[in-house]
Design a protein around this nucleic acid. Structure first.
Length: 409
RNA sequence: GGAGGGAUUCCCGAGUUGGCCAAAGGGGGCAGACUGUAAAUCUGCUGGCACUGCCUUCGAAGGUUCGAAUCCUUCUCCCUCCA
């Protein structure tokens, strides 16, 4: 069987390793308990987290034991890495709520039965630490001089860094130590923005326990231009279908830039690498096929086959006029009475949230960006009534690809 | 604690001899053209509404004035230097 390290490397996950060869051997020789930390800063995981989840799945498949460490304790402090300003402080209640949402989502991807994987909250040990003991036992091993040179603090040195956040690195390092002691966890994985925190953790385990601790970081999901992926204007792409509907989720991947297709396939699907490479090398309009597969596969992993099918057939209907109209197109149901007298288009647009104001609707119509049943609307005084419905349904479109179905009930 | 500097529309950032400021410019975003539901490019738009007009906005609250982002007072927050 192929070493999972090689698989991860081939698929392009790995960015940096503390001891590349040793880690490779370790993963080959024994069942390793490893962990990845997740700070509960929101009530759902997003696409950025998903890449870490993918790694967990790969590792678990190879027989290793993942620990999903939820940062109920570190979340109280806030990680300054990759931030130019201080994070908002979350309330204790918010954090607890987020922790439970995370737990739910993990169990969809990772098998937690019979201790094949663990989910642990670092509040278990962080919340009751004694300040003086902690300083003496842990703090003594950290050099401020060295910490200040760490990448994750550098730009914050110019912008300002609170002492609270400065401690984050110690907290995370201490997590590693605890997990090492409690579960013989030898390896910490994480996004590359965690590199400083990870090496300091491995270092701490080595100093205090004289143990073999390793760290490995993964590429962040970025576009070929280096921009972070998984964000849109309306915010992150969430794994929670309530926050990002499966159809939108599907469309996000359907629309990735050409040069990013191969990378996304490798990182976010389990398709064999030969297939990934073949799809990634398609040229011109052909690459649309690869994008369809990408969108379908990722949606299937995250939301299940049924939702993926729905999203795909909805997309095909809307863009190619083939396939079945499906419930997965964003839609609203309105009362028949609303349309007996008729409702003006601007009001309808804001009702469906397609536009955030009537002014915006007016502008879009002037510019020819609003379509009703595929016919461009050019009067913003247009009244919509029952005659515009076919089979009690009506399709609104904003721009080229944002659809909204209205159904009469 | 002391001395200075700052807070402007989604973001950055002009504007502070009071009216010509819904507020330059850039970024981002949205739409149109071109396309492959891609990128690049070009064009238009980008506070709200009952849209040739009205309303709300320039950290917060008051004040001066016919009129304030611009002047005065108090407050809040941020930054820099000093301890």
């Amino acid at each position: 069987m192929t070493n999972v390290f090689d698989i991860l490397k081939e698929r392009g996950y790995i960015e940096q390793a503390t001891h590349e060869e040793e880690i490779r051997e370790l993963l080959n020789d024994e069942k390793v308990t490893f962990y990845i930390g997740f700070d509960p800063t929101a009530d759902s995981l997003h696409v950025g987290h998903f890449i870490q989840v993918m790694v967990m799945m790969h590792m678990q498949k190879a027989g290793h034991r993942p620990i999903a460490l939820i940062g109920g304790g570190t979340g109280m402090v806030g990680d300054p890495s990759g931030r130019t300003d201080m994070r908002k402080m979350l309330t204790v209640a918010q954090i607890e709520h987020n922790v439970s949402s995370f737990k739910n989502q993990f169990s969809r991807f990772v098998d937690f039965s019979e201790n094949r994987a663990l989910i642990i909250n670092n509040s278990d040990w962080l919340l009751n630490l004694n300040y003086i003991d902690f300083l003496r036992n842990i703090g003594a091993h950290f050099s401020v001089n060295r910490m200040l040179t760490a990448e994750c603090f550098k730009n914050r040195l110019e912008k300002g860094l609170s002492f609270l956040e400065f401690n984050y690195m110690l907290m995370q390092s201490y997590d590693f130590l605890e997990l090492y002691k409690r579960y013989n966890c030898k390896l910490q994985l994480g996004g590359n923005d965690q590199w400083s925190n990870i090496i300091s953790g491995a270092d701490l385990v080595r100093r205090i326990e004289n143990g073999n601790a390793y760290g490995l970081t993964f590429k962040l999901l970025t576009t070929s231009e280096g921009k972070k992926m998984g964000k849109t204007e309306s915010g992150a792409i969430w794994l929670d279908p309530e926050k990002t509907p499966p159809y939108d989720f599907y469309q996000y991947w359907r629309n990735v830039d050409d040069p990013d297709v191969e990378n996304c396939l490798a990182l976010l699907t389990f398709l064999p690498m030969e297939e990934v490479k073949r799809l990634g090398s398609l040229k011109d309009a052909e690459i649309n096929k690869a994008k369809e597969i990408l969108a379908y596969e990722v949606t299937k992993l995250v939301h299940g086959q049924e939702e993926a099918d729905k999203a795909q057939s909805a997309a095909k209907t809307l863009f190619n006029n083939s396939g079945d109209i499906s419930t997965s197109i964003p839609s609203s149901k309105l009362n028949e009475s609303d349309f007996i007298k008729g409702i003006d288009i601007l009001t309808l647009l804001s009702k469906t949230k397609l536009t955030s104001s009537k002014g915006e609707g007016r502008r879009l119509i002037q510019q020819g960006g609003i379509y009703l049943n595929d016919k461009r609307i050019d009067e913003f005084s247009q009244i919509i009534n029952l005659d515009d419905f076919e089979d009690r349904k009506l399709m609104l479109r904003k721009g080229k690809k944002i659809y909204h179905q209205i159904e009469i009930i």
